[in-house]
Design a protein around this nucleic acid. Structure first.
Lengths: 343, 343
DNA sequence: ATATGAAGATTAACCGTTTAAGTGAATACG
DNA sequence: CGTATTCACTTAAACGGTTAATCTTCATAT
C-alpha cells in the first residue's frame, strides 16, 4: 500500500531554481546580510515554490547544533519506567516545551532508568541543552558535566558551579505550611514525604517543617515522619501508617500534593474526616488540587515560571557560553483552602 | 567558565584504533554478519576504549532514519499553548515513550498551534513515525499523508485507509455509562462534553449516550447536552450551567474524567451533593479518579495499552511498509465507585 | 593446475548542510 | 589614475556516518 517516499527537496534544488549557489541559499536561510535584497527575494520565492524544508540532521552534522533540548524526569515508581506519572512533571514539561518551541527548539523527553544511558543519549543526539528535574546520584552529574552541554538543574541543591539552577524556597515553603498548621492549634503533625536525600528538595522541606516545630517549641520526632516514594498510592499507604501509628495526630503536612491526595483517600476511608479529624496541607499546588474535596490547602509554586525560566537559562547559556552560573529562586506562597481546620 | 567542548570521537578514530576501515566499524555496529568474530571483538574493544558513541544526525543523513517518533497532542485550552494539561495525555505519552525507548527510538513531543507547522517539523526532523492523538482538520491529515511517514491515529475516527488506528469502543463505553445511570433509576441525565466534531470520539460518546436513553424510552434532548472545551475549568463552568438550567437533573455523564472532576466541584459548591443530589459518571479512568471524594465511577480504558499499541503499529509499519492498515479497538469497562446513587 | 566461490575486508561515493577562503566587479581613497 | 576596500557571490572542504561495488585471499571443485 505504501507508495514510494517522495524524494526530498534539497538546498541544491533550490539553488538551481534560483540560479545561485547552495552557499547563497544557506546564507539567506541563516540571515547573513551580505546578500542583495533582490537575490534574497529570488531565493525565498524558490523555497516557497519548491516547498523546501531544511534537513536538520544535515544541519546538525555541519553546524554543531541539533536544536534539541533534553529533559530528564525522575522515574517516580522505580518499577514502572513511566515518566509523567506525577502531574507536576507534566505541568513543568509543558512549560519547558512551550518555551523551547517558540525559540526554535524541540524537546526530547525520555525516562531514564540507567543513568549512564542518558549520557549516551546526550552525545548521540548532540543535545544543545539539558533540563534535569529532581535529584540523581553524583555520578550522573559528573558524567553529564563532561559533555560541556549547558545544563540547568530544577529542584536540586547540587552545589556544583557548572550547573545553572532554578529552584524554589523549599525550606521556607515547608515552614509556612507547618506554621499554618501550628497557628491553627495543631501540635501532633505528621510529615508525609518522599525519601530524603542530601541535597534534595525533600530534605529541605523536612528542615522547614522542623524549623516551624522548633519555633513553636514542639519537639521534632522521628516517628512523626513517614517516608515513601512520591505517588498517589504511596501517599495512601503512608497515611494508613499514620493512622495505625497510634500517635494522636491532628494534622499532616505532605511534601507533595500527590502524596496529600493519596493520603486524603486513606484518611477518609479509615474514618478520619478531613479536616475535622485531621487537617492536611500539601506542596506544589497542582492544578488538580483545588478540585479536591475538601480543596487542598497547599504551598503554591509557579510551575510554569519554573519551566520557562529553566529554558531561558539554557538559551542564554547557549548564546553566551562564557557567562557563569545562572541561579534563580522563585517564591512560594501558602494558599489556604479547605483542608485545614482550626483546633 | 565554559571550557572547550571535547571533540567528538568519530568512527574514524575507532577505525584507526582497531586497525580496520571505517566501513568495517559501521558494519559491526549494524550487525552485518560477514565480519570475523575476531575483528568484531577488536572493534568492540576499540569502541569501549575510546568511549565511542555514534552521531545520530550523521547516521540520519546517510541512512534515512532519525529514530525519532513524533507525538501530536491537542491543545486543550486554545489560548494556552501548553500540551500536557490533561492527565490523559500525560499517561498515554508516558506509555508511548516507554515503548519507543525500549525499541531504540526517542520521542519528540511538541504542542502544535499552527497545523502546517507540524508538517514542517516532520520533514525537517525526518520523523520515522507519528502518533496523532485526537482530532484535527482534514487538511492536517492530508498534508501529513503526503510525507508517507507511518502514522497512527489515536482516538480519531478518520476513515482514510492510509492511517493506522487505535481506538476504544467509545460509543459502547458511553452507552454502558449512561445505562448504568438509567438502571439506577435516573431519567434526567445531563451530558457534559467537549465540542462534538464529525469523526471525533466525543460525537461517538454522544451517540452511546443517546443509544442508552432511547433503549430506556427516554427522549434525547438538545438542552440536556452541555458542550465546552475539555479541562477542569470547563467542567466546572459546564456544571454550573447544568445547575442553573432549571432542568431537574439527577445525574450527569461527563465524556472525560477531567470534565467530571471539574463538574464535581461546581456541583458541590452549589449545594448539589454527590451522589445524593446528583450522580455522576466519567470517562477515561484517570489515575486520579479513584482518589476523588466520592471516588469517581467511570468508564475504564487501558491507556497504557493504547500507547504501547500505537507504538507497536509504528514499528511494524516501519519494518513491513508494504503491509496495509493496522487497526485495533480496545475494550472498555465500567468501573463502579461511589459517585452514582440508586434512586 | 585452473576455474569457482565464499569470506572478510576495503574503497569511495553519497546523504544535505555550513562556512572559510576565494573571486571578480564596483566603489572609495589619496 | 592606481590601489584598497567593500560587496555579492561562488568554490570546495568539511561534518560523521552508510553502503554498493570492488578487491584479496584462500579453500574447494573440476
Amino acid at each position: 500500500m505504501q507508495t514510494e517516499r517522495p524524494k526530498r527537496t534539497t538546498i541544491k534544488d533550490v539553488a538551481k531554481e534560483a540560479n545561485v549557489s547552495v552557499a547563497t541559499i544557506s546564507y539567506v536561510l541563516n540571515g547573513k546580510e551580505s546578500i542583495s535584497e533582490e537575490t534574497k527575494e529570488r531565493v525565498r520565492a524558490a523555497i516557497q515554490k519548491l516547498n523546501y524544508v531544511p534537513d536538520l540532521s544535515a544541519r546538525g552534522l555541519s553546524a554543531k547544533s541539533s536544536k534539541l533540548i533534553g529533559v530528564v524526569i525522575p522515574q517516580t515508581e522505580p518499577g514502572s519506567h513511566l515518566m509523567l506519572t506525577n502531574p507536576f512533571y507534566s505541568e513543568i514539561v509543558s512549560s519547558i516545551e512551550y518555551s523551547a518551541r517558540i525559540n526554535g527548539y524541540h524537546l526530547l523527553i525520555s525516562g531514564t532508568d540507567a543513568d549512564a544511558d542518558y549520557l549516551k543519549l546526550a552525545m548521540e543526539r548532540k543535545l544543545d541543552g539539558i533540563v534535569i528535574i529532581g535529584m540523581y546520584p553524583d555520578e550522573f552529574y559528573n558524567e553529564l558535566k563532561k559533555t560541556r552541554i549547558p545544563i540547568v538543574l530544577v529542584d536540586s541543591y547540587c552545589l556544583d558551579h557548572y550547573f545553572h539552577s532554578v529552584q524554589i524556597n523549599d525550606r521556607y515553603g515547608a515552614y509556612i505550611a507547618t506554621k499554618h498548621l501550628l497557628e491553627n492549634g495543631h501540635r501532633e503533625i505528621a510529615l508525609i514525604c518522599g525519601v530524603q536525600k542530601e541535597g534534595g528538595v525533600i530534605r529541605k522541606r523536612y528542615e522547614g517543617y522542623a524549623d516551624a516545630l522548633k519555633e513553636f517549641g514542639v519537639p521534632v520526632r522521628k516517628d512523626h515522619v513517614f517516608e515513601g516514594v512520591v505517588d498517589f498510592d504511596s501517599g495512601l499507604a503512608l497515611a494508613q501508617r499514620v493512622v495505625k501509628s497510634g500517635v494522636p495526630f491532628t494534622a499532616a503536612f505532605a511534601t507533595a500534593d500527590i502524596l496529600a491526595i493519596g493520603a486524603m483517600k486513606a484518611f477518609r476511608s479509615l474514618g478520619w474526616a478531613i479536616p475535622d479529624r485531621i487537617s492536611i496541607v500539601g506542596f506544589d499546588d497542582l492544578s488538580i488540587s483545588r478540585y479536591m474535596d475538601p480543596a487542598l490547602t497547599t504551598v503554591h509554586q509557579d510551575i510554569h515560571r519554573k519551566g520557562t525560566s529553566a529554558m531561558e537559562m539554557i538559551l542564554r547559556s547557549i548564546q553566551y557560553p562564557e557567562e557563569g552560573k545562572q541561579e534563580l529562586t522563585l517564591p512560594v506562597t501558602l494558599v489556604e483552602r479547605e483542608s485545614v481546620r482550626r483546633m
